[in-house]
């Protein structure tokens, strides 16, 4: 188990990644806070990672699963009506960013995860297939559909 210093360092190192994955599912900071606690608690008690990439893959996967659990929870369904998803908590976010994030968030799962992993994290279709427990060709198909939907949503 990590000591406090190692845990602080790890949280700072991966906080932005976890926050971005959270943004795929919910715009609310309170939800992100719950996800942060769960993810980093599991991270702190994890026996160890083989490599930095493994660590990052593990964090992304656990964050996605935690967010999905949160979306399915009764508390989230009561407190987060769909119209609130269009709002983002941070005041520093511009309209352009909000528009793009909402467009990605409006994609169905697993299209939104595929878009994030490919366009932001730079994962290949093969890596995404491993992360999402699917096949590469299916990931290519998801990427094509997602790109088409995003072009329609973001077309001025």
């Amino acid at each position: 188990m990590l000591d406090q210093a190692e845990l602080s360092c790890a949280i700072r190192r991966h906080a932005d990644t976890v926050r971005r994955v959270c943004a795929l599912y919910s715009a609310l900071t309170s939800d992100a806070e719950d996800v942060f606690q769960e993810v980093f608690l599991k991270f702190a008690t994890h026996p160890g990672f083989e490599s930095p990439d493994h660590e990052k893959h593990w964090l992304i996967t656990v964050t996605m699963n935690t967010c999905k659990d949160l979306l399915k929870s009764a508390r989230f369904k009561r407190s987060a009506p769909s119209d609130q998803l269009a709002l983002y908590a941070s005041e520093s976010i511009s309209d352009e960013v909000t528009t793009v994030l909402n467009a990605v968030r409006n994609l169905k799962t697993p299209l939104r995860e595929t878009v994030y992993l490919h366009y932001y994290e730079g994962y290949t279709a093969v890596e995404i297939a491993q992360l999402l427990n699917s096949r590469p060709n299916t990931v290519y198909s998801w990427l094509a559909r997602a790109r088409k939907l995003l072009e329609e949503a973001l077309h001025d």
Binding site: I11, F36, I93, V100, Y116, L150
Partner: peptide, 20 residues
């Protein structure tokens, strides 16, 4: 546009502190 949008999403210091 996607890369720039996600670049803007960052964990603020308060969230990190509370999590720690």
């Amino acid at each position: 546009r996607i890369r720039q949008a996600f670049d803007s999403v960052q964990a603020d210091e308060e969230l990190i502190t509370r999590t720690m």
